[in-house]
């Protein structure tokens, strides 16, 4: 009998009834004994408050066109994507751009020459490159500082000895260190690419001081850095045509590497993490099913006493 009852009702009898729950909850309400007028009044008040809030929000956001700087679009960088590494040929060109263009004003003082080995240059090239710089060292056994050719373990020398000297040479504007600049700006790589390629004439009414230039991507519009990237601003050693956008793309890729030198390793580990966690998840799921199988396959029936 119990078996046939079970067959007719299915497991419906064992399920919690949400309808009953709802009725129970509604008896918790303190508004149940209120007069109808009071309820109506409160409902109207609620709707009015909500409406006023929505109106204020709508008015507020309709005038959100504040500010004159442009927001950089997102470009299809070749290092975007969960598995994509840097394009190291591009990084190598980017170093060329930094060295030939940016390094006359910007330091890159947290990058050591040795870090370029195996990323953009061979060891022999880096040794040669570092030796072209004169590095201040010392004190020697006479207590004097002296200049010596650079070594791979040296950090990239800065163009100015200190911030004051940098400001004095740039109309009071300080060219920031470029090592971590990509991480230090919102939407780093897209912003810097747009900044470098976005110079234009100031719109009517914008007055620039001496030594200022107009760039719609720079907050405020007036930037102390002149346009430095033009078509053919340098010749790439690998023969890539040096259009302005190519130059900007390469230097920004390089600066992205400088800010995130662990980038490629991170991508590699992403694959491993996904693989391991997929395995672990499968095992965990199997174990869960296995442990629960006895509980799930047992059956509770009603057997009335004779």
């Amino acid at each position: 009998m119990a078996a046939s009852l079970g067959r007719v009702c299915g497991s419906g009898l064992l399920k919690a009834s949400n309808g009953a729950l709802f009725n129970q909850v509604s008896t918790f309400s303190t508004a149940r004994d209120w007069a109808k007028g009071r309820k109506t009044l409160l409902a109207c008040l609620g709707v009015a408050t909500g409406g006023a809030g929505a109106l204020v929000y709508a008015l507020e956001s309709s005038v959100k066109a504040e500010g004159v700087e442009l927001h950089a679009p997102n470009y299809a960088w070749d290092f975007y994507g969960h598995l994509s590494s840097f394009d190291h040929a591009s990084l190598r060109r980017g170093w060329e751009v930094y060295k030939n263009v940016c390094s006359s004003c910007h330091s890159l003082k947290y990058v050591a020459f040795r870090e370029l080995i195996g990323v953009t240059h061979t060891e022999a090239e880096v040794k040669e490159m570092a030796a072209e710089y004169e590095i201040k060292d010392g004190p020697n056994d006479q207590g004097e500082y002296y200049m010596r050719p650079g070594k791979p373990s040296d950090y990239v020398p800065s163009p100015y000895p200190n911030e004051e000297a940098a400001r004095a040479a740039n109309n009071g504007a300080y060219p920031p260190d470029l090592t971590y600049i990509v991480n230090a700006r919102h939407n780093g790589e897209n912003y810097i690419f747009s900044l470098l390629t976005g110079y234009c004439d100031p719109p009517a009414g914008v007055v620039l001081m001496d030594g200022q230039y107009y760039n719609p991507y720079f907050p405020g519009g007036a930037i102390g850095m002149a346009q430095v990237i033009y078509d053919e601003v340098l010749d790439f050693e690998d023969g890539t045509p040096a259009t302005a956008s190519q130059v900007a793309k390469d230097v920004v890729s390089f600066l992205t590497w400088a800010s995130n030198p662990e980038f490629d390793t991170r991508k590699r580990w992403f694959i491993k993490a996904v693989g391991i966690f997929t395995l672990l998840l499968t095992v965990t799921y199997y174990m869960k099913r296995h442990r629960w199988s006895t509980i799930k396959s047992r059956k509770i029936v009603f057997a009335p006493k004779k």
Binding site: S84, S85, H88, A89, G118, E125, R268, I271
Partner: peptide
């Protein structure tokens, strides 16, 4: 296996793919 996936996905982009051009 994971390294092979990464290397084949990024074929031609990594340093090891271009370093032969610069090694004397």
């Amino acid at each position: 296996i994971s390294n092979q996936i990464f290397d084949s996905y990024n074929k031609g982009k990594q340093w090891k793919d271009i370093k032969h051009k610069y090694e004397k």
